[in-house]
Simulated assay, not measured.
Amino acid sequence: MSQRKYRAAIIGTGAIAHAHAKAVLGSGRASLVAVADVDAGRASEFAATYDVPRSHASAEELLRAEELNFVHLCTPPKLHAPLALACLEAGVTALVEKPPTLSLAEFDTLIEAERRSNAHVATVLQHRFGAGALRLRRLADAGELGRPLLATSLTQWYRDGDYYAMPWRGTWESEGGGPTMGHGIHQFDLLFSVLGPWREVTAVAARRSRDVDTEDVSMALVTFESGAVATIVNSVVSPRQTSQLRFDYEHATVEVDHLYGYTDDDWTMTPAPGHEKVAALWAEGHTDVPSGHPGWLTAVLDALDQGQAPPVTTSDARRTMEFIAALYASSFTGERVRSGQITAGSPFALSMEGTGAPWEKVRNK
């Protein structure tokens, strides 16, 4: 039986849009029929680069003119929620770059709109779908690794003043947060996809170096429903850049050390004494295919073929968004925050800044 062929479009033709276009064109299962950008010249140039038939000057024009199955939203974060809502109203599935919204309340608005639509919203968190992550979840789910005990997630990147010269970066109003929202989310979302529901978090966030409104570093201690504990570090002030995950199970330690994407060669498995067989299980199916948008899009298309919501679903992404809100709440109030504690009326549901960043309070005295 032949696979279904999908019609896709991209809204926002900045840097990340190129990864999306290449994934669509390389899939063999979807065609890129249109793009849109408020910068009409950039949209036209992008369309010419990827042989896209049509470009539009606005998202509204694109949704009105095109017959689509899904749209990739590659705009600055402030526009994600309104554009995803417009897609749902048009009956078009929205594939939204991270962070999907600026706040938990905005995300819950998307969930409600999705329930009223025949379309879906999925967040682009592509590192869940690399071969190493798939293998780790498979072995963990099968019990081969024993109980999860301890984990670490490190996103230590470097972003200088030129990076923050973009006016929407480093602000609560346009980006929603600092490295916790826009950088570390990839690593700790992958952590959550492996370890499952988190239970409580104690955290700190600080502005140590960058001239921004948001934090430039954050750290969290997290307890999971399984009893496992984890540390999570997010930074944009670290000259030696790295993205690291480590999982200590009863039977093995599993680690990955990369930067913006990994292959199987970036992962290591260290079995505990007496459990050497797990190393052989880990070595099965070794591949040199990198993690990235192509693997994620394959999972999206597979789900759509089955009539299912594409990954990362709203229920999955909400767990990650709630954690971000809880990290900020713990950091700014000095309190431990439990899962489910940030309800609709909480300031940290309405904005990740919540009651206000401590450094802003000092500045305003």
Rank of each mutant, 00 (worst) to 15 (best):
E114V: 07
R147Q: 12
S117Q: 07
F107N: 04
A113C: 00
L68G: 12
E61H: 09
N69A: 12
S44P: 01
L73F: 10
E60T: 13
L139G: 11
R135A: 15
W157V: 13
A65C: 14
E66G: 10
P82S: 10
L25R: 06
H80S: 10
R42I: 06
R115D: 14
A36V: 09
T123V: 15
L104I: 05
S58C: 10
A151Y: 06
G132P: 05
I111N: 06
N118L: 07
G143K: 07
D37I: 13
T123N: 14
L62C: 04
T49V: 01
L73W: 08
R128L: 11
A40K: 09
L32S: 04
L110G: 08
T152Y: 00
E114K: 00
V38S: 02
A142S: 13
G132Y: 09
K22P: 00
A48Q: 10
T93V: 03
A131R: 08
L83Y: 08
G130S: 03
N69Q: 06
V35E: 05
L110S: 08
F70H: 06
D141Q: 14
L102G: 12
L62Y: 00
L88R: 03
R138C: 01
T123S: 15
R128Y: 12
S31D: 14
E67K: 11
H127E: 13
G26F: 05
A131N: 12
A113K: 09
E106Q: 15
L145P: 06
V33S: 13
H120A: 14
A86Y: 04
A43D: 13
R135F: 07
A30T: 04
G143V: 11
Y158P: 01
G143C: 09
L150S: 03
A131F: 06
R115C: 11
